[in-house]
Write a protein that binds this DNA or RNA. Sequence first.
DNA 1: ATATTATGATAAGTTTTATTTATATAATTT
DNA 2: AAATTATATAAATAAAACTTATCATAATAT
Lengths: 310, 310
Amino acid sequence: MTITQLKYVLAVAEHQNFTKAAEKTFVTQPTLSMQIQKLEEELDILIFDRSKKPIELTAVGKKIVNQAKNIVNESERMQDVVDQEKGFIGGDFKLGIIPTVMPTLLPMFLKTFTARYPKVHLKIEELSTEEIIHKLQEGHLDAAIAATPLQQPSIKERVLYYEPFVGYIPESHRLSQKKQIETSDLDIDDILLLEDGHCFRDGVINLCRASKMAKNDHFQLESGSFETLIKLSHEGLGMTLLPYLHTLDISEKQQKNLRYFQEPPPAREVSIIYPKSELKLHIIDAMYQLISGVVRGAIRFQDVKIISPV
Amino acid sequence: MTITQLKYVLAVAEHQNFTKAAEKTFVTQPTLSMQIQKLEEELDILIFDRSKKPIELTAVGKKIVNQAKNIVNESERMQDVVDQEKGFIGGDFKLGIIPTVMPTLLPMFLKTFTARYPKVHLKIEELSTEEIIHKLQEGHLDAAIAATPLQQPSIKERVLYYEPFVGYIPESHRLSQKKQIETSDLDIDDILLLEDGHCFRDGVINLCRASKMAKNDHFQLESGSFETLIKLSHEGLGMTLLPYLHTLDISEKQQKNLRYFQEPPPAREVSIIYPKSELKLHIIDAMYQLISGVVRGAIRFQDVKIISPV
DNA sequence: ATATTATGATAAGTTTTATTTATATAATTT
DNA sequence: AAATTATATAAATAAAACTTATCATAATAT
């Protein structure tokens, strides 16, 4: 069994086709046929069911592909080990970002980052916190940006910034006349929330828990985007809470409906997180420096009250 | 980079000597020299410091060896994947056992197991629960026998048996006259305990917590073996608690000092535990069947009160 | 039904790589 | 200084991986 053979298996499994897989792996089709046959012979089991059209994995084949992914993944990390020692900033870098951070933070640093570190091939994925934790542990991500603290023993966190919550309160709302709002003003039943799975939603719920005791756990109106929440709020369906950076992007007219919290405002902690193995730490360091520098210009709150995302 | 090259690196790192490593890997010394040089060239970094005598790993070399272990380990698991599919019961099987189970349980099943499954190469290690959890997660163990429940999300547990605690009470002790003892009789300050790190110790402490509230956390007398605890108890230093299977091994004279708990007796849960990956499940199954069968003949308590080890 | 196309297997030959044998070199011990 | 021990290097060989060319088979089109 060789790493090369395993890569061939993965290619064929992915493309369900020897010829295409051969192109992708830059060898000829007979090479794949022979090497995969050789591996099947060595393991004494069939990986592919060639009677199916297109070709399919056998039951064991699926498990073999899984294990092959582990091996190939680990083998690719060897270069990271060396890169880290050399202080080389380059190579693939897989970054996960939670949805409520992605659209505001990414434009702030992406251009500068790729310009400053042209040898880094960024692969950015929008993922839920749950998915991020899982993928970090499985080695499918090198780092991620998420709301913290997460209290995951296998994951390290480095705080990038604290992002205050800001109330978005339509004219019709009972709190509309207030210049500033307080945590104790909030009523969970009257706040429009993102749909389940967003940790910003969980943060808001925790924030409300902090003021009044938890109410019922049933919310009628939910959405996947803050834009929708703002629109819904104008339908008289309640107020909503936005992360501070998002408030910089909304229209001037909408800006008038923003109500800030009395200081110290409740805020979420946003961190770059990565596995304890600390592979690609140089890239993580570089990204940390750049993002925290950029955000320091945009967020000028001194003191905040951190709301846990979990 | 090939798996073979990595195995060569591991061999040289282990033996600190190319010639010996060559023998162990069944190739000639120049093969090792050349292949390792080739790998060093590919990674463009020195793995070994050949100026040192005996040869030493460089700083990166140590990290490379670590990663190489991961890769080689994962690659060896490929055969397990196939074996499992075929229902083949054989190959290396690394089993960890906690010290307070090892001497009583091992003789009960080892002979039968090796006779029934001659193709399995058992490698048994005596380890603390903590070490077991770590090694299971790292893939250095295939399974282990420990007191449960452990509440480790990455580890599965299958209960083998419930083993009651039995009091060992010397003639001089205040409880000596009682035919049966109760949990409420126990006083943690007067029970001789195994030294720190044994989960049986933790079980006993939890048991006492269950009766009276926790007392001070300071114990004067501790030992690594039940034999010593029994001897110490005769010095008037207190009573002790033994796991039931251990009481079958002590002398007839000492048997007279045993005092059983009123039913349902407190007991520890002993399980075979293994990673969720479920590799070598067939061997684990086989071992589970055999042990639970053997123990069923030795422990005849119907109902017990489980004491947690953590 | 026949031709065409797509796809994977096989055969033969070539290139590349891994390994061995033999030998050189450097460091250490006697 | 000679002997010993340990690794590196060189040349030759064995093994493997890969390519080109061709075949077999099944699905699709004419």
